[in-house]
Simulated scan of single mutants.
Amino acid sequence: MSAQGEPVLEVRDLVKHFPVHSRGVVRRRVGDVHAVCGVSFDLYADETLGLVGESGSGKTTTARTLLNLERATSGTVSYGGRELTGLSRRQMRPLREELQIVFQDPYASLDPRVTVQEIVAEPLRIHGRYDAAGRAQVRELLRLVGLNPEHGNRFAHEFSGGQRQRIGIARALALRPRIIILDEPVSALDVSIQAGILNLLMDLQSELGLSFLFVAHDLSVMRHVAHRVAVMYLGRIVELAPTHQLFARPSHPYTQALISAIPLPDPRKERARRRIIVEGDVPSPISPPSGCRFRTRCPRFATQLTESERTACVEQTPELADRGTGAPVACHYAQPVRLL
């Protein structure tokens, strides 16, 4: 699929900061956690856009802010030409029918006190769409995600982790949404189970015409499911490219390091491949580095750049723009490299 036509979801300069307060009886605001800082992207019809990065990069916060589960500090999110940021819970309710989410943990995201039938039926009841045919709708949804409709009278704890995630997907599909945000939907599952869930999602996308924002930290998963991939580091998108291009010739040093860490099944290729090592810890999001946020860990910063080039990295924040590589990258000195 190619990104063509009008986007179904437009995100511009999205910012989300969390206040940090001092300890003690009188709690004062002493700073902010810069979780998401100026994120922009488009999501198109029938597309899977991957959002990847290390833990703490801001992926999940971005996903939750898109749905107003977290209130944006600034920036805009538009769906079908309508601005979502700033809407109240009541104003968002009609839009929930078309914007849904599947959470990471299939054990914590399902109510253990009610049956699977009621879990999947809940969105239909909330939006007044559960009628005489409601039970049949739920049975069809369970069948659609590969579960036995006869097991709808069971409780969530009676299912395996993979089956529970299928229940969560069925619940997200109940209102026939256009967009589903998948917040690391397979990271809590065994590798043998992950492939079944990923194949199910791709089949559902093809059959129902869905758009996915797929949040994950595993680039191997993205290579399998995403049409485009946005790489996040410390609250910013540092590279956004079609999946085949990103894996063939990544341009940002951080993306290159992530891809070089993916194990190869061929031992000879694995031994001969080029490794790019990123040393040091991720800086604190309370006080991120000036200029390029990756410069404190960039393997090229200290050894391959001139003094004037390093000064630019320290003083100037690189914008996410096409610098002749064919896709947007936030690096002053982006250089595509073939790794796999």
Rank of each mutant, 00 (worst) to 15 (best):
P7T: 08
L9D: 04
L240T: 05
L201W: 03
L213N: 02
C292Q: 00
S88Q: 12
R176V: 02
A257Q: 12
Q194H: 12
E6P: 01
G146V: 06
S206P: 01
H332N: 08
Q245L: 15
V39P: 07
S88E: 07
L258H: 02
S290V: 01
L258C: 06
R338L: 13
L258W: 02
G146I: 09
R178S: 13
R274T: 10
G53R: 07
M222R: 11
E307D: 11
S192Q: 11
V229Y: 00
L264Q: 10
R300A: 14
L189E: 13
A133Q: 15
R274N: 01
E150H: 12
V116N: 08
S206N: 09
V186M: 00
A257C: 14
L340K: 09
L219R: 00
P106L: 05
G209C: 11
L9E: 06
V215C: 06
A321C: 12
L142A: 05
L99G: 01
T296H: 06
R273Y: 07
G81L: 04
Q194R: 13
V221G: 08
F155T: 03
S40D: 14
D13G: 07
V25L: 15
V191Y: 03
A334H: 10
A302I: 05
R139T: 04
L198C: 04
R271S: 10
V225D: 06
I169A: 13
D131K: 11
L49G: 02
L204V: 03
I101Y: 00
S260I: 05
H244Q: 14
G134E: 06
I193W: 03
L141P: 09
A174P: 04
R273C: 08
R27W: 14
